[in-house]
Amino acid sequence: MSAILEIVNLVKYYGTKSNITKALDGISFSVQQGEYIGVMGASGSGKTTLLNCISTIDMASSGQIVINGRDITAADRRSLARFRRESLGFVFQDFNLLDTLTSYENIALALSILKVPAPEIDVRVREIAHTLGISDVLEKYPYQMSGGQEQRVACARALVTKPSLVLADEPTGALDSRSATALLESFSQLVHQRQATILMVTHDAFAASHCDRILVIRDGRLFYQIVRGIDSRKQFFDRIIEVITRLGGDDEEVI
């Protein structure tokens, strides 16, 4: 397995010289292809900044982000846009579906902007919809669907382009536990079936327990790393809780 994402000494400062916030303070890690990575941390620990930097929506102050062997911190704006649509897939906490488009069109849009021919778009949209169990809601608008369905449509949109890396920002945050479980199981399935690589930021220990590996971030640094190994999901969950409790002990903040 090759490293799909390589973060080296990533730094991101906000603000002016007199009032600097160190959102990321020299963080380094790498992700292998087909890995299901969770990123945990308290509010303000730098999770979202990290995600924004990787997704090229935000720019790092220093350090390197290498995706598929390419340093994206050095790329210009236009090639970044191309990189985003070709190599990344996004899943957001609030789904971020276009409310004027049907599910089908939302998913197809990701392929349209890649200039995939129409017949192929149709095949791929139906295939991913089948995998995620949303074939029956393809002609519905976002407001006509449940949150769980919306999020699965959002996942379909992220995955239909077969991106090197799927970035998920609190994907279960707005879902009830049943929908969340269904979604997380879909993720696991995708990772195993399609060799997709997922980087998921989450607060939720339950959600995190579906991952292969958890990175815990604190104050912009990598604080701890939990590898699932051969543990069952339950055992892994307990270990995560343990770490969080420890983290909570050190820190006043409750996660």
Binding site: S55, I57, R77, R78, A81, R82, F83, R84, R85, E86, L88, F90, N96, L98, L109, A110, I113, R157
Partner: peptide, 9 residues
């Protein structure tokens, strides 16, 4: 959102 999805300016 479109920009995040990688649509060029």
């Amino acid at each position: 959102l479109l920009r995040k999805l990688g649509v060029e300016a």
